[in-house]
């Protein structure tokens, strides 16, 4: 059933951010809100009226929709262990990356549409960091393609388990890279601090300063979806083939929760980088993914 993973991701997205917030609260010694609190907030937003700036144009109005749609389409490409995603074809991860880029493109120009200096700043940073993070994902996928000999999400995750145990080591490294990419893509620590209250230090939050109501709800939930989506990719690395769905689903959920807890932990113990240090950090991921590539070469015995 190809739609299964889609539904799972949607479900996960409902509580993912809640777990993150809960983890952070526990680490900071508070009880914290319930794990569905973020969803309640979003639901409230979705019922509110929209406020638009005089400066903005139709781009601003349509940008959140496209952003949300792009994330949805990206999710449809994610496989579930041996099962392929709703759409699966050779090079689908290229499409995955580019459809996310479409969303990013619109969220950036949507921010610029308001004519607000802070939103422009956020847009500038977002664009900068995303181009720095882009190569890492592609190198990672290239390495996996090299390892398995396939060029689509489904085939790669299908094939990845037939290797030795060392492929799990690679899986760990890859999930490390994916976590970092997810943190950057979703503007979390250590690149960005969603809890900051100073516009000058924001990235993603400052871009949506002017969005309100339904639009803001879409944007916020798109972030949740994205988290769950990356969690699903990470989970895929550990879904062993041949197991039945009643094994797979708990593993999937477990990995998602673990991912959320890791995110929360990271956010609790790591301070945000200085803005000017972010590029180095982001580029480090590319270097790490290159290391994965070398590791894959070693495994395949192509490189002595």
């Amino acid at each position: 059933m190809p739609g299964l993973v889609f539904i799972l991701i949607i479900i996960t997205s409902f509580f993912f951010t809640g777990i993150v917030i809960r983890t952070k609260s526990i680490f900071s010694g508070r009880k914290g809100p319930g794990i569905f609190q973020p969803m309640k907030d979003i639901w409230r937003l979705l019922q509110k009226e929209n406020v638009y700036s005089q400066t903005s144009s139709f781009i601003f109005k349509i940008a959140p929709d496209i952003y949300f749609a792009s994330v949805l389409i990206a999710i449809m490409l994610i496989p579930f262990g041996t099962q392929k995603g709703i759409f699966s074809f050779d090079g689908d991860f290229v499409f995955f990356a580019y459809i996310l880029a479409v969303g990013k493109f619109f969220s950036i120009i949507g921010a610029l549409d308001t004519g607000n200096s802070f939103e422009g700043m956020g847009a500038s940073r977002e664009a900068l960091y995303s181009f720095l993070a882009e190569p890492a994902f592609f190198i990672l996928m290239g390495s996996l393609a090299l390892l398995t000999g396939y060029t689509s999400f489904g085939d790669i995750f299908n094939g990845i388990h037939f290797g030795s145990y060392i492929s799990y080591a690679i899986g760990t490294l890859a999930s490390f890279v994916l976590i970092l990419i997810a943190m950057i893509e979703n503007s979390r620590m250590p690149v960005d601090d969603p809890k900051t209250h100073l516009e000058l230090t924001m990235i993603h939050e400052v871009m949506v300063l002017d969005n309100s109501g339904f639009d803001l709800g879409l944007i916020l939930h798109a972030t949740n979806l994205k988290f769950a989506m990356y969690g699903a990719i990470i989970a895929n690395l550990f879904l062993t083939p041949g197991r039945e769905w009643y094994f797979s689903i708990p593993i999937f959920i477990g990995v998602q929760i673990l991912f959320a807890v890791v995110v929360g932990t990271l956010e609790s113990f790591i301070a945000r980088f200085r803005m000017s240090h972010n590029p180095q950090f982001i580029f480090t991921i590319t270097s790490i993914s290159l290391l994965i590539f070398f590791a894959v070469l070693l495994i395949l015995g192509k490189y002595f």
């Binding site: 144009s57 610029l112 422009g120 847009a123 995303s130 181009f131 882009e134 994902f137 190198i139 590319t286």
Partner: peptide, 25 residues
């Protein structure tokens, strides 16, 4: 692959700039 991805990301930066600054705000 990395280079092409980088080019894609840079193009994004470039055209968000171009479109955003020319037409928006």
């Amino acid at each position: 692959i990395a280079g092409l991805a980088l080019i894609g990301g840079l193009a994004l930066l470039c055209f968000t700039k171009a479109f955003g600054i020319i037409f928006l705000g």
